[in-house]
Design a protein around this nucleic acid. Structure first.
Length: 302
DNA sequence: ACGAGAACCTGTTTGC
DNA sequence: TGCAAACAGGTTCTCG
């Protein structure tokens, strides 16, 4: 149901020799989806000719034999699960990539135009001459390998919740995951084992759209509220993916970096600013839950 | 089993 | 102006 945004505009932009950069991103599901789509033209149906690893000490550590296990392999499919990007290789290996919170992917259609950055930890070169650089200043990112035939049988995928944009994700499924939960709904929605791919920003946004207070206990939501929440989660993610897609397309018109978030959020980061509901005169409230910033409208969200 | 909080990390913002 | 402290957040680990 998702439109292909890596269209011919995108290809022509890449072939001008410029590069493609993601910046100022808190990678949640929509950002990871956009990054994966941006990687597709360069990495899908490509042969990995060379891998350069500048440092191995990302979260969990990059396997010491990572380069030798992927060099020469053919990438025949990319997919996303939650906030992870998985590249499937033709040698029964899958590359698992997580952007952490500061991870970026830069793509150079011609490796000769590559400009090295301080935190470029891993660099992939393809047989077609492209270069894909994984940059991550905070090193919360992850990069490791799994057997392709069983990549989703191990943590974190084995216990991961539904993909919120799948048809399999519906109100009843969310309800059953929440009934045993006593924590605030905000905290529960951040749990990747309940819904995959939500992070702090989109949880705040979804609760705002559903008119549900982040302070409510998970098991206190009634059926109507869970219906609204399910729809709000899907809507907010679809909107954000569409915005990411439009920035991909707009890239042909820009000379510099590509950022996602020219658009503003309804509540996230808007402490003390006016609520965006036309009939509401309240201001956005801020609090901390489970050590994370929460933004909400106390008047609209009950 | 569950929930809360700390730790990890560094670029950026805030406060004195 | 300059420096230090606070802040940001996804995941994993620890503790109650």
């Amino acid at each position: 149901m998702l439109a292909i945004v890596a269209d011919h505009f995108f290809f022509s932009a890449l072939h001008k020799g410029a590069f493609f950069r993601y910046t100022d991103v808190m990678p949640e599901l929509p950002e990871v989806e956009t990054v994966m789509r941006g990687m597709m033209p360069a990495l899908e149906n490509a042969t990995i000719q060379n891998v350069t690893i500048n440092r191995f000490d990302l979260r969990g550590g990059i396997p010491r034999d990572f380069a030798e296990r992927v060099t020469g392999a053919y990438v025949d499919k990319l997919e996303r699960r939650g906030k992870y990007i998985i590249a499937h290789l033709n040698n029964d290996t899958s590359i698992i990539l997580h952007l952490g919170m500061s991870g970026r992917i830069r793509i150079f259609p011609q490796a000769t135009s590559y400009d090295a950055q301080k935190h470029d930890h891993v660099i992939f070169d393809t047989a077609a001459g492209a270069r894909i650089a994984f940059e991550d200043p905070r090193r919360f990112g992850m990069l490791y390998l799994a057997p392709r035939s069983a990549w989703d049988q191990a943590p974190p995928f084995s216990k991961m919740g539904s993909e919120p944009l799948d048809n399999h994700f519906h109100a009843q499924r969310l309800a059953s995951a929440l009934t045993s939960r006593k924590s605030p709904i905000k905290s529960a929605l951040l749990d990747q084992n309940i819904v995959a791919g939500l992070g702090n920003i989109y949880v705040c946004e979804a609760l705002y759209r559903a008119h549900i207070s982040p302070l409510r206990l998970s098991n206190s939501l009634n059926a109507d509220e869970i219906d609204a929440l399910t729809a709000a989660i899907k809507d907010v993610l679809r909107d954000a993916i569409a915005a990411g897609g439009s920035t991909l397309r707009d890239y042909q018109h820009t000379d510099g970096e590509l950022g996602y978030f020219q658009h503003r959020f309804d509540v996230y980061g808007r402490k003390d600013e006016p609520c965006k509901t036309a009939t509401c005169d309240a201001t956005v409230q801020h609090c901390v839950q489970s050590g994370r910033s929460t933004f909400y409208c106390a008047q609209c969200q009950l």
